[in-house]
């Protein structure tokens, strides 16, 4: 799992690639929570290059969503087909704002 971070105006953009599974989740969760604590309350997690996600990966997304809710912030996701499948299977699409690509997500934010 590779995590890259950049800022676009006041939006934190986190780009994940590879497998987003239990083994890496602790570290990624800490990085994302740090970003939320230090950021402006706008977070874009781009998972277009994520090839596999499990329930632990989804738990990291839910934790980020809850933290941003406390800050009255906004979480936007960009998903790959495998990520989208698990999000729909677990009905998380009813809470997450999902865009097809990073440009569309940044434009909406």
């Amino acid at each position: 799992m590779i995590l890259q971070h950049r800022s676009h105006n006041d939006i934190d953009v986190v780009q994940l690639s590879g497998r987003f599974a239990m083994a890496d989740c602790g570290e990624i969760n800490l990085s994302i929570q740090d970003l939320i604590n230090q950021g402006h309350g706008k977070l874009l997690i781009d998972m277009e290059k994520v090839t596999f996600i499990d329930s632990s990966g989804c738990a990291v997304l839910v934790a980020a969503y809850k933290s941003l809710q406390l800050k009255a912030g906004r979480l936007v996701l960009v998903t790959s087909p495998s990520v989208q499948s698990l999000i729909e299977l677990t009905r998380l699409h009813t809470i997450f704002e999902i865009f097809p690509n990073q440009d569309a997500a940044l434009e909406a934010m």
Binding site: C25, D54, S55, S56, C58, A59, L86, L89, T90, R91
Partner: peptide, 8 residues
């Protein structure tokens, strides 16, 4: 994590 594992 536990809740999502149970959801799956």
């Amino acid at each position: 994590e536990k809740l999502l594992s149970d959801c799956v």
